[in-house]
Structures are given as structure tokens and as C-alpha cells.
């Protein structure tokens, strides 16, 4: 301990620290405000209906985000359809069924590790495992792989997946899987033990307890986590870049095997060009992206506030 100080000095330190706190806290608020204002300033001018409904173009004035917008919708839908059941299932097993032993400890540590793996590394995994399938089917449908249906039909399917919507969606699934698992585990953990004991005491099987009691009680938490994970998926671009999302595509995807672009990569492409006109439309695309994001966050906040009943 330092030498005793007078009460006045200590009160002064107290005041000074509060000032530092307020200053630091305001950094986040100011940064967010500046960011939003600067993007609105740059992007509102070129944001109009045509921008949303036109295909990409080499001329910034005519360019639109139709294809990447639909690409994002396809990729995120696939990602959600696989990641949510898989992640929630994993969490239910770990929290409600698995005996706490060496295996669960390894799985748990492993999930924490997966949550820390940079997303671009998942891109490499997705490229090898989904787009190329470890080379097990050659490099294309002609060269050792196979294809069903014709390329324009909705049911067209081929192996390996190539740089397709399906490969992209599955890669994003890898990225958000640990997030979904961790969020669901936390939601399940917050359900009081007494509810489970009550159900079991009334003669319910463990599965009936989980399905009828624990899961319904944890649903608001699980949904909040799922929505936040999906909002991460919408904004993720590095892994899709590695898998081979294209930066210039005219059409929205037609089937699971279509080439695709996504909104964040379109933003990346435009932002990386030197001309100010492209920066302006990049900002417009960012506005669209942020509106989608705010809608997602809004739903999450709504669920948290309206549906979460106190259980204790």
C-alpha cells in the first residue's frame, strides 16, 4: 500500500477517474456517430430504387446490387438452415445429456478454440472440403465428378460443389457454428435446475424434459443468439472470398450450384477502387447492409425484452 493520502486527494482522484470514464465511454458513441454520418453523407446521394434492382456494371452510375443482394440471401439461408440445427443440437447434447467427463471437456475446449479461429482460415477449409472436396471427385463434373440435371434448372446438383452458393453457405456455417453453440449453451444454463427436477419427478423422460420444459424456457435466449450469429454471417466476407465468390456477377443465383456474389464482397470490391464514384456506391451498399443489420439487431432486442420471462 502507498503512503496514506488525505481524504481530499482521494476524493479528487475519484472525480478525475469518473471524468476519464466518461471520456472513454464517449469514444464508442462518438465513433459510431461519425461512422454512420460519414457513410450516410457519402452514400445517400446514389441510393435509389434502381440501385437495388440493377445488376452490376462497370459504370458506377448504372451499377446496382441486385446479384450480390440475392447472393447474400441464398448464402445466409443455407448457412442458417445447417448451422442452427447443428449448433443447437450440439449445445443440447453438451448441456443436457453428456456426462461431464474427459470427452465433454475436450469438445468444450475445442469449441472455444473454433470460436477464435480467424474466419479466413475457415475459408481455406471451405475451399478444400466443400468447393474441391479434397480432390476426390476431380476438379469438375467433366473431370471425375458428376452432375445431375441441367445447369439452368432449380435442382441442378454437382460434385464437387465448386465455388457455388452451397459451398459458400456451408463455409459460413463453419464460421458461425461455435457462436450458435456457445449462445445456446448459455441460454440452456440459465434455465433453473428446479424446472428440470420438477419434470423428472413427475415421471418425464430426459428427452421429454428437454423438449417440453427446458427448450421452451430457453427459446428467447437461443433465438437472440441465433439472430446475432446470423447477423455475423451477413457481414462476413473473408471466407467467401477464399471459397471463390465472384466480384463481378450479373445474375442472382438460380440454384445451389450457381456462382454468387455477396453484398460485403461487393462493398470490398468498390471500396478498393481509387475513384470517388465507386466509393459513393460502396457507401450506398453499406447503407443497405447496415439497414439489414439493424433490422436483425432490432428483432433480437425485441425478443430479449418481450419474451424473456423471469424464471427464478
Amino acid at each position: 500500500m502507498a503512503t496514506p493520502r488525505s481524504t481530499a486527494t482521494r476524493l479528487l482522484t475519484n472525480r478525475a477517474f469518473l471524468a476519464v470514464c466518461l471520456l472513454a465511454t464517449n469514444v464508442a458513441v462518438v465513433v459510431l456517430a461519425v461512422l454512420l454520418i460519414s457513410i450516410l453523407w457519402q452514400g445517400l446521394g446514389s441510393l435509389n430504387w434502381n440501385f437495388l434492382t440493377h445488376a452490376a456494371s462497370r459504370k458506377p452510375a448504372e451499377a446496382g446490387i441486385l446479384a450480390p443482394l440475392w447472393g447474400s440471401v441464398w448464402v445466409c439461408t443455407i448457412c442458417g438452415l445447417v448451422a442452427l440445427p447443428l449448433g443447437i443440437g450440439t449445445a443440447i447434447y453438451l448441456e443436457e445429456f453428456a456426462r461431464k467427463g474427459r470427452f465433454t471437456r475436450i469438445v468444450q475446449t475445442n469449441i472455444m478454440n473454433l470460436a477464435g479461429v480467424p474466419s479466413i482460415v475457415y475459408g481455406i477449409l471451405g475451399l478444400t472440403a466443400f468447393a474441391r472436396m479434397f480432390g476426390a471427385f476431380g476438379t469438375s463434373a467433366e473431370d471425375g465428378g458428376f452432375a445431375i440435371g441441367n445447369e439452368e434448372s432449380l435442382l441442378y446438383f454437382k460434385l464437387p460443389f465448386g465455388s457455388s452458393v452451397l459451398a459458400g453457405g456451408l463455409t459460413l456455417m463453419l464460421v458461425i457454428l461455435p457462436i450458435v453453440i456457445i449462445a445456446t449453451q448459455e441460454a440452456l444454463r440459465s434455465v433453473p435446475k428446479s424446472l428440470r427436477s420438477g419434470a423428472l419427478a413427475l415421471g418425464a423422460t430426459p428427452w421429454q424434459t428437454v423438449w417440453g420444459i427446458t427448450l421452451p424456457a430457453a427459446i428467447p435466449g437461443i433465438m437472440t443468439g441465433a439472430i446475432l450469429a446470423m447477423s455475423r454471417a451477413i457481414g462476413e466476407s473473408a471466407p467467401l472470398l477464399v471459397v471463390g465468390a465472384v466480384l463481378f456477377v450479373l445474375n442472382a443465383p438460380e440454384n445451389l450450384m450457381s456462382d454468387f456474389a455477396v453484398l460485403p464482397l461487393q462493398i470490398f470490391n468498390w471500396a478498393g477502387r481509387p475513384q470517388d464514384e465507386f466509393h459513393a456506391i460502396a457507401a450506398s451498399a453499406i447503407i443497405v447492409q447496415l439497414v439489414a443489420l439493424l433490422a436483425f439487431n432490432g428483432i433480437a432486442v425485441f425478443i430479449r425484452q418481450k419474451l424473456q420471462k423471469p424464471l427464478q
Binding site: L35, I39, G235, E236, S237, P264, L265, Q289, L290, N297
Partner: peptide
């Protein structure tokens, strides 16, 4: 929640 590409921009 803001995508990192937005921070890059």
C-alpha cells in the same frame, strides 16, 4: 455487429 469491410471502408 458492423461488418469488418465497413470498418475497412
Amino acid at each position: 455487429g458492423i461488418p469488418t469491410v465497413v470498418y475497412g471502408f
